[in-house]
């Protein structure tokens, strides 16, 4: 049993069979996580570097925990991207690390493509933990795994992604992953948050949140970053909430249950009401647990152990 991919750079080119394999492994690791002793020796002797060029709390901790649960040896390297601006080339930084005989690299970087650049010239397995506004494959995998857990299958499921699609790595990875798994995807955002020509990816596009909620079995609600307002892309968070917020009233008016995902961190009462985020149809905390399981699965399967 092995994956067709050698690195996990994004979900753009990952086939369905690989995703299914990752889910199978992840569901087995979920059981490990429910045990009193939550540790397996799977990656004993394997060295993983967590290379974070951008602040991260959730993803970093989730990977750290996944590595610990698998008994891997880990090294953490955090660098503000400013140190690279001082003149050291990204290539030098990374080659230096890899000279220390690393097996796997988990990398986050603020610039799209940096993770691919790394993969092109180092002899280690690379896992993308988010590269700028490009992809965040493990987040999408945990989102889709949570949908699979909830609905049994993802095929033909209607999933809406609502929020700042354009500046989101989570959205793009979700689009690729969901399409590969046979789901129908609708994107909903204010026009300045909708990426150019995104309908070419075989997704539906709407500016009307009620239409999206009507369509969806599940919605993935993206965080609205406050700085977007400062840069003039939207006039106010107030208007955003009125037009696009997943409010109690909106959800209550639907004639059906709707499953709620959020990759976090949430701006409560902006893109989502607390009553919805904490409500019975939210699977936001399942996502967090599945995040550890899916990262264990990815580390395990890509390590070749």
């Amino acid at each position: 049993m092995s994956l067709s991919i050698e690195n996990l750079l994004g979900l753009e080119d990952v086939p369905q069979a690989d995703i299914n394999q990752i889910f199978d492994a992840a569901f087995s690791f979920r059981e490990v996580l429910e045990r009193p002793v939550k540790k397996v020796p799977t990656l004993k002797g394997t060295t993983v570097v967590n290379l974070f060029f951008e602040p991260s709390t959730r993803t970093k901790n989730s990977f750290a925990l996944a590595e610990k649960r698998l008994s891997a040896d880990t090294v953490n390297f955090s660098a503000a991207s400013s140190s690279l601006q001082k003149g050291e080339s990204l290539k030098d930084t990374i080659q230096n690390l890899c000279a220390m005989k690393i097996d796997l690299v988990v990398m986050r970087h603020p610039t799209p493509g940096s993770v691919k650049m790394l993969a092109d010239f180092v002899n280690a397995v690379i896992i993308n933990a988010g590269d700028g506004t490009h992809e965040h494959p493990t987040q999408a995998l945990l989102d889709i795994m949570s949908l699979k857990e909830k609905f049994g299958q993802v095929q033909d499921l209607n999933v809406a992604i609502i929020g700042d699609i354009k500046h989101s790595r989570v959205a793009l990875s979700n689009i690729y992953g969901l399409k590969t798994m046979g789901a129908n995807v609708m994107l909903c955002a204010p026009p300045p948050f909708m990426p150019v020509s995104v309908e070419d990816l075989d997704v539906k596009v709407t500016y009307n949140v009620d239409e999206a909620l009507e369509f969806a079995d599940a919605v993935n609600v993206l965080r609205i970053q406050k700085e977007r307002q400062a840069s003039g892309l939207i006039p106010s968070l107030r208007e955003y909430r009125n037009r696009f917020g997943i409010t109690l009233e909106r959800v209550a008016s639907l004639q059906k249950p709707i499953t709620i995902l959020h990759p976090g961190p949430m701006n409560r009462q902006v893109e989502i009401d607390s009553a919805i985020a904490d409500g019975e149809n939210a699977i936001i905390l399942d996502q967090v647990l599945n995040g550890v399981a899916v990262r264990m699965a990815v580390l395990f399967l890509l390590s070749g152990s």
Partner: peptide
């Protein structure tokens, strides 16, 4: 260039 390529690479268009 701002196009489907900027959309799928995440690079600023």
């Amino acid at each position: 260039n701002e196009s489907i390529v900027s959309t799928t690479t995440g690079l600023r268009g």
